[in-house]
Simulated assay, not measured.
Amino acid sequence: MMKPYTLPKGFIFDIDGTLILHGNALPGAVATVNRLKEAGFALRFVSNTTSRSAAQLAESLNRLGFTIAENEIQTSVTACLHYLSVHYPTAQGYLAVPENIRGLFSFVSINEDKPEFVIMGDLDNDFNYALLNKVFNFIRNGAQLIVFHRNPWYFSEGKTWLDSGAFTLALESATERRAVVTGKPSPVLFNSAIASMKLDSKQVVVIGDDVSTDIAGARNIGLNAMLVGSGKFKPDDLIKYDISEAHFLPQLADLLTLLNLKA
């Protein structure tokens, strides 16, 4: 396997589909991440999940054998909080987010009639027509829809499930207004991760399994990226998205070989 670029100083890893799948660590993932940390690489872990906080994600990953600190995890939720503090510091909004992260938005002044923005997250079974119709009319009346991602589906419990991104796309189509996205592939999440690493973007490589969020998001802001053959990966992705051999990892553990590191 040829080296795709000069030796990086940091890596940004997607979590679901890259490190874990269906709640279990993928083969070689724990050893790869822990060995990179031992070797002194700066690591960050990014996720579009809105159902768990960074602390909860760190706890679940560490139970699987990873050594990951809460402050090494960046989520679409943490990126959204930063976005609101900059663009809507005093505005009134409406929250359509899971109960377990609602407390993170305690600073938001709630307006049930004419909000200036709507935050919509992964509500799963709590999505229903009444809620979607309410959000639809808020947007029609001028509210800005802010979402964590546009993922149309996800893995869970060994199955595939419709994700909140599917409802985002429907609302955008119905209202003819684009949502603000704070998670992948938006630059907001990647830039936040790089800033926390205190590295130049040219020193960082993004690794993920989803070409539409991980790889496309990295490419959009000029970051080096490598696609891993797990999770959402499909062989057709290599041709469709022009992924060269040098930018493809059949297994995550191949990264150690590429870097001349022993597990």
Results as ranks from 00 to 15, higher is better:
residue 3 K to I: 13
residue 8 P to N: 14
residue 9 K to E: 15
residue 19 L to T: 01
residue 20 I to D: 08
residue 24 N to V: 13
residue 26 L to D: 07
residue 30 V to M: 10
residue 50 T to W: 00
residue 50 T to Q: 12
residue 51 S to I: 03
residue 53 S to E: 12
residue 62 N to S: 02
residue 74 Q to F: 08
residue 76 S to E: 13
residue 83 Y to V: 07
residue 86 V to E: 13
residue 88 Y to G: 01
residue 91 A to I: 02
residue 92 Q to P: 00
residue 105 F to A: 06
residue 109 S to Y: 07
residue 113 D to T: 12
residue 114 K to Y: 13
residue 115 P to D: 13
residue 118 V to A: 12
residue 118 V to I: 14
residue 122 D to E: 14
residue 126 D to K: 14
residue 127 F to V: 10
residue 128 N to L: 02
residue 129 Y to A: 11
residue 131 L to R: 05
residue 133 N to S: 09
residue 136 F to M: 09
residue 137 N to C: 02
residue 147 V to S: 15
residue 147 V to I: 14
residue 147 V to Q: 10
residue 147 V to H: 12
residue 157 E to A: 15
residue 161 W to I: 07
residue 162 L to M: 15
residue 163 D to F: 08
residue 164 S to T: 13
residue 164 S to E: 09
residue 167 F to M: 11
residue 172 E to S: 08
residue 176 E to A: 15
residue 181 V to D: 01
residue 181 V to C: 05
residue 188 V to Y: 14
residue 188 V to A: 15
residue 189 L to C: 02
residue 189 L to I: 04
residue 190 F to R: 01
residue 190 F to Q: 02
residue 201 S to Q: 09
residue 206 V to A: 12
residue 213 T to A: 15
residue 218 A to C: 03
residue 219 R to A: 15
residue 226 M to W: 10
residue 230 S to F: 03
residue 231 G to F: 13
residue 238 L to K: 12
residue 238 L to F: 10
residue 250 P to G: 14
residue 258 L to V: 05
